[in-house]
């Protein structure tokens, strides 16, 4: 469903992605991990064309992202994205956050959008909060609304960019629970995260990045029991030791 081939990107002279190859099949849950600045988020943002890149190909559902041109917004709408800092639109209430793109991008009626929004709010356990504004919700609630907002677009794949990194520890669980449920329903997911427990339980594969390169792309159990590279072994020992 997603094919990344020989992807490279520079900011000036600094390479942030080097020769990355990754392919994600329908229904797969892939966790991308690695130290800060390793290029994980950038890789994710190249998939829906939020970040331009200089070399290589990103193909989503048969469409070349770099050459999508006017079709890019349509393509993005089919990839749900969840951000570290939620990025709900603060001037719109929860219902409007959920309906906005359904109406503008998918051309759904107000009624159809609201029906869809209610189903998904119920699914993330926030039915009573439809009329509230983002600033009136907790971080965990905001992130669940953000997930519901992405799901309203009936995405073929969900991209998560450190979805729990900005949350209080107490709220991480409620967001991971929603993501677990999504994975169990068969959603294709690419998740950038430091939650190794989540990766261990849910991911089919783990991709390990460092210095803009993909160093490992391994089946989950194998990654945790016997990482292939010394760098990944070191990363795991540091992150799991506390």
């Amino acid at each position: 469903m997603i094919e990344i081939r020989k992807l490279s990107k520079w900011y000036g002279d600094t390479a942030v992605l080097r020769d990355c190859d990754l392919s994600i099949r329908k229904g797969e849950v892939v966790v991308v991990c690695g130290p800060s600045g390793s290029g994980k988020s950038t890789l994710l943002q190249c998939i829906n064309g939020l970040e331009p890149f200089q070399q290589g190909d990103v193909v989503v559902d048969g469409i070349h992202v770099a050459r999508a041109g006017r079709a890019l917004p349509r393509l993005r709408a089919r990839l749900g994205m969840v951000f570290q800092r939620f990025e709900l639109f603060p001037h719109l209430d929860v219902m409007d956050n959920l309906c906005l793109a359904q109406r503008r991008v998918l051309g759904r009626t107000q009624g159809a959008s609201e029906d869809k929004a209610r189903v998904l709010l119920d699914r993330v356990g926030l039915s009573e909060h439809a009329g509230k504004y983002p600033a009136q919700l907790s971080g965990g609630q905001q992130q669940r609304v953000a997930i519901a907002r992405a799901l309203c677009m009936d995405p073929i794949c969900m991209l998560f960019d450190e979805p729990t990194s900005a949350l209080d520890p107490e709220m991480i669980g409620e967001v991971l629970e929603v993501m677990n449920q999504l994975a169990a329903d068969g959603m294709t997911m690419v998740v950038v995260t430091h939650e190794m427990g989540f990766a261990h339980r849910i991911a089919h594969r783990v991709v390990f990045m460092d210095g803009g390169r993909i160093l490992e792309d391994t089946e989950t159990a194998a990654f945790f029991s016997a990482p292939q590279t010394e760098r990944a072994r070191l990363f795991l020992s540091r992150i799991l030791s506390h």
Binding site: R74, M81, A146
Partner: peptide
């Protein structure tokens, strides 16, 4: 980014 990611 969030607005563009939604397809706007």
């Amino acid at each position: 980014q969030a607005a563009l990611a939604l397809g706007l």
